[in-house]
Design a protein around this nucleic acid. Sequence first.
DNA 1: TCCTATTGTCCGAATTTCAGACAATAATAA
DNA 2: TTATTATTGTCTGAAATTCGGACAATAGGA
Lengths: 255, 255
Amino acid sequence: MVKEATNTEIQGILFNSKDYFEQFIPQFSIDCVIFGFHDNELKVLLSKLPKLDYWSVQGGFIQKEEDIDIAAVRILKDLTSLDNIYLKQFQTFGKAKRSEYSYAIKQVLKEQNIDFDAIPFLQQRFISIGYYSLVDFQKVTPSVNLYFESSAWHDINKLPPLIFDHTEMIGTALETLRQTLDYQLIGFNLMPETFTMKELQRLYETILGEPLKRNNFQEKILNLNILERLEKQFTGGAHKAPYLYCFKTVSKKSI
Amino acid sequence: MVKEATNTEIQGILFNSKDYFEQFIPQFSIDCVIFGFHDNELKVLLSKLPKLDYWSVQGGFIQKEEDIDIAAVRILKDLTSLDNIYLKQFQTFGKAKRSEYSYAIKQVLKEQNIDFDAIPFLQQRFISIGYYSLVDFQKVTPSVNLYFESSAWHDINKLPPLIFDHTEMIGTALETLRQTLDYQLIGFNLMPETFTMKELQRLYETILGEPLKRNNFQEKILNLNILERLEKQFTGGAHKAPYLYCFKTVSKKSI
DNA sequence: TCCTATTGTCCGAATTTCAGACAATAATAA
DNA sequence: TTATTATTGTCTGAAATTCGGACAATAGGA
């Protein structure tokens, strides 16, 4: 077991490997699949490795004396600056070889003075607890984790190359979201404050991956009695204007 | 971080703490909630702490280079001697203080020369990945883990005092089982080779916690076309004898 | 003023779920 | 042998739900 501290200069940040071992539980991470809805597309927030077309679900580590659910909230807040968000654990990923970068990737990173092999804490195998969260796209201000170049939203149907088992991870998160949507009203967490019925229908169609009947969808949702009808939205189209709606409930988290 | 090996004599087994650190990932365990069905009751297999009325879901540790799913299969086999069993991960438990024995329990264990405080590997906080499995009650030959006195099946509605967060763990496993039963035919994993329709109905009623209509249950199950009707079962009752059934499918695991 | 595209709602058909009824029958009692 | 009893297998129609088409209302443009 590695114990010695090593100091590494990465992107101008003096990084002390010993800090990791003192602060966090080794071999153990939390990854957070963040879903948002925009332009009639379901998207996930991903971060890009510098100078590589490889992307990653973002995450973090668990402090020595921290509940994992608390850690997940903290990590999500670091990544999105959002609080009080729908956030659920969905699966733990633990293939022995899951968290190894390919030689090619390591080389490119080394050219940029990022050498994970020099950070003992990161050299070990990691088991990762997957959480997924549903956020209001408009409210997120993404931040970029250490070692990454940028963050961006990606359509769930057009995912870029992903590191590790992150493609599978997003797939499992989406499948969990789908199944949960069938019997819980979590979809609303993805909507802005006000919205039309058509926009809500598009969200459901995107998540479920199938078209829904307009009349029946409207009837079903209205019968749930969770929406408040607001003023009409005049979009300028040559047709009847739709109503705007908002949720009756107070806390999004509890829906 | 503790590195030194300590030897401890427990129940006649010379136990080397260093082995733990060399073989397994620290702070990380797998717990396996094993469900069986017998006497019209849904039961879980639990192990008892010696001379204490405290019981535990059984589990094990993950080898350094072992996939967690593989580890779960290995652990289940150790506990039940069964292979090729329905086994699914359902949740990971990670409260910071979840894996601490009370002072009172430690005292009683110490009187029997079981001193967990003397085993550095076990002194740390543990995060545990919960798996649940569905087994044919009749086929299980339970084995008892180190440190435990005996194993026994317990009715899910009459659980004894449990250590750590194991009560919650069993509750979550049961809830997962319930929800999965609604759209997958996993119930069959709990049945013996042959059974009557009434027995199958009792299983469903026990898991779902609600009575079902005999006629509609029979019709629905038969329409699924997964059962093969065998000979009648003459039990000696003064009434029409029911048919025995078995599954058409080959592998139980795949249902 | 008419036309078009979309929205909100209604209503009947199709399907599924639900509940009662009844004949069949294995063992026992008369 | 026959009647009785408890349970099983199946049928059928009612109730509830889902599904799909139709149509009036309407905002803006022609």
